[in-house]
Measured scan of single mutants.
Amino acid sequence: MTEYKLVVVGAGGVGKSALTIQLIQNHFVDEYDPTIEDSYRKQVVIDGETCLLDILDTAGQEEYSAMRDQYMRTGEGFLCVFAINNTKSFEDIHHYREQIKRVKDSEDVPMVLVGNKCDLPSRTVDTKQAQDLARSYGIPFIETSAKTRQGVDDAFYTLVREIRKHKEKMSKDGKKKKKKSKTKCVIM
């Protein structure tokens, strides 16, 4: 069974824990209790493949930012979460993405942009803004509501699919490099 290491990042209060708990335990946590770091595991079937999701729910508070490099190193894919009623959390996505790329030393890291709290009427981040940002990053965008469960499975499952595509691409690139290195030079 394939294991996928997913990391949920975003500013404090955007609903990272609520999304994760909704996926794992099928219930909505409405009281806000700032996370330092929590880890969850769940076995699911995605596109006919049974897999184990190892999900790291991270601290959004700035005082825990020193811990970010460590979990970013171990993560295979990242859910970059903002709240649709919090423009600052949307603007912060850029910083999370840049930090992930720096730590992973790669421009090509599996990510999904997630606009959470889409059940709320007080939207300050337009869907088109988020779609445009995701398009500019070359990553999928999904709106979710941890409260109603809308888009929750889709967000995590899409990230797994992005990781699969990335692994497939990397193995193809690896095979191309191996083929090239088999060419021999004969000096007579």
Results as ranks from 00 to 15, higher is better:
2 T>Q: 14
2 T>I: 03
4 Y>D: 10
6 L>T: 01
6 L>P: 02
6 L>N: 00
7 V>F: 06
7 V>Y: 03
8 V>N: 00
9 V>L: 15
9 V>Q: 00
9 V>A: 03
9 V>S: 01
10 G>F: 00
10 G>L: 00
10 G>N: 02
10 G>C: 01
12 G>N: 02
13 G>Q: 07
14 V>W: 00
15 G>S: 00
16 K>V: 03
16 K>P: 00
17 S>K: 06
17 S>T: 06
17 S>V: 00
17 S>P: 00
18 A>D: 15
18 A>M: 09
18 A>T: 08
18 A>C: 08
19 L>G: 05
20 T>L: 13
22 Q>R: 09
22 Q>M: 02
23 L>G: 15
24 I>H: 13
25 Q>V: 01
25 Q>I: 01
26 N>P: 09
26 N>K: 12
28 F>L: 11
28 F>C: 12
28 F>R: 09
29 V>N: 13
29 V>L: 11
30 D>W: 06
31 E>T: 05
31 E>N: 11
32 Y>I: 12
32 Y>M: 11
32 Y>A: 13
33 D>M: 10
33 D>R: 08
33 D>V: 09
34 P>Q: 14
34 P>W: 02
35 T>W: 13
35 T>S: 11
36 I>C: 09
38 D>Q: 03
38 D>K: 05
38 D>R: 07
39 S>P: 08
39 S>R: 10
40 Y>C: 14
40 Y>S: 13
40 Y>M: 12
40 Y>E: 13
40 Y>R: 13
41 R>Y: 06
41 R>W: 03
42 K>P: 08
42 K>E: 08
43 Q>F: 01
43 Q>P: 09
44 V>F: 08
44 V>A: 11
44 V>Y: 03
44 V>W: 02
46 I>K: 10
46 I>M: 05
47 D>A: 06
47 D>V: 01
47 D>M: 01
48 G>W: 01
48 G>L: 01
48 G>C: 01
48 G>Y: 03
48 G>D: 06
49 E>A: 04
49 E>G: 05
50 T>V: 06
50 T>R: 09
51 C>T: 06
51 C>H: 05
52 L>V: 14
53 L>P: 02
53 L>R: 01
53 L>F: 09
53 L>T: 08
54 D>A: 03
54 D>M: 01
54 D>S: 11
54 D>K: 14
55 I>L: 05
55 I>Y: 07
55 I>H: 06
56 L>P: 11
57 D>F: 15
58 T>W: 04
58 T>P: 12
59 A>I: 03
59 A>H: 12
61 Q>R: 08
63 E>M: 03
63 E>I: 01
64 Y>P: 15
64 Y>W: 08
